[in-house]
Simulated assay, not measured.
Amino acid sequence: MKKFALMGVAGFVAPRHIQAIKETNNELVAAFDPNDSVGIIDSYFPKTHFFTEFERFDRHLEKLRLEKEEPVDFVSICTPNYLHDAHIRFALRNNADAICEKPLVLNPWNAEKLMVMEQQSSNKINTILQLRLHPSIVALKEKIANQSNEKIHDIDLTYITSRGNWYYASWKGSLEKSGGICSNIGIHFFDMLIWIFGDVVKNTVHLMEHDRASGVLQLKNANIRWFLSINEQVLPESAKKNGKRTFREITIDSEKFEFSDGFTDLHTLSYKNILSGNGFNVSETLKSLELAYNLRHTKPEALTGDFHPMAKLPITNHPFFK
């Protein structure tokens, strides 16, 4: 049984990590979050020591390591994106392996420096790239790998996940803290596509707003028109009629790629792989981190030539930005 500490336990994705720790028969001994709405811990680990102040959390882990000789083996990081770098370093300084949510960091050079720190440590940095473990996506990668390397696939990626007004008042609505839409909700898809279809050859940005982004991405074996949004107003009518606030669709050579199911156990599977020494390391995140960074720093071009059709939708500024 391994001992875990979890940072950002009040966050949206933290319950998946708590469940993964439980389902892999390990123990959550300490947790930290400035927000104290963490009652979900009781359903899994009611004896977990919880802290709302980082300094006391830090002291507790140090006492476990130095005084009780019961150090934590892993620190799971579900904190805001801009803090991942510092919290990964914190894990390594506590002689623990890090398990960090996406995006690992916001800037490629931060990842490169973490790789240097990891080499000087006896511990590992793992990142969650759960789409690489999805059965349908694994099958797609195998299918593409068995085809001619010269074939260029035409792909449309559309991902809309509606967010309410709270989003813009939180760290997620801050470009400096979240990295914007490309880092916050697009990073998994960019990683998946690069993993399957090869390295980035060229990217064109047509739209980069607070609530949506779009462009054309050329990979070694694919041309991809992509559209990301958190604005419910751009949901297709079919989704609105069914009361859905999320729309996710990928078409490959005009055929819909279905991967709607199979998401429920991916964090647990991620943890199983990490515990067996097969987690995804820092170097495997670099290409998607570089892409997301370049996208948010690229000046949008006019809608000419090929572009995602939803990039033409009218933009209404959110009241928060007026």
Score class of each variant (00 low, 15 high):
238 S>A: 15
177 K>S: 12
287 K>F: 06
244 K>H: 15
67 E>C: 09
102 K>M: 05
265 D>F: 04
132 R>S: 07
27 E>I: 04
317 N>G: 10
231 N>R: 06
194 I>S: 11
292 A>G: 09
82 Y>M: 01
189 F>A: 09
187 I>G: 02
271 Y>H: 15
304 T>H: 13
242 N>T: 12
191 D>R: 03
145 A>H: 06
270 S>F: 03
276 S>A: 15
5 A>F: 00
188 H>N: 13
282 V>R: 12
71 P>D: 04
92 L>F: 01
189 F>T: 09
152 I>E: 14
40 I>Y: 00
60 H>L: 01
56 R>A: 11
140 L>V: 08
292 A>C: 14
229 S>H: 05
74 F>Q: 06
274 I>K: 07
124 K>G: 06
161 T>V: 15
186 G>V: 03
281 N>E: 09
255 E>A: 14
304 T>E: 13
200 V>T: 09
101 E>A: 06
21 I>G: 04
228 L>I: 10
91 A>M: 00
319 P>F: 08
138 V>P: 07
75 V>H: 00
143 K>V: 02
36 D>C: 05
52 T>C: 07
103 P>R: 00
17 H>M: 06
275 L>V: 13
57 F>N: 00
68 K>S: 06
198 G>A: 03
284 E>V: 05
135 P>Y: 00
77 I>F: 07
164 G>E: 11
165 N>D: 12
129 L>V: 12
306 D>H: 09
276 S>D: 14
221 N>H: 05
153 H>T: 03
116 V>D: 13
138 V>Y: 04
115 M>G: 15
50 F>C: 01
238 S>T: 15
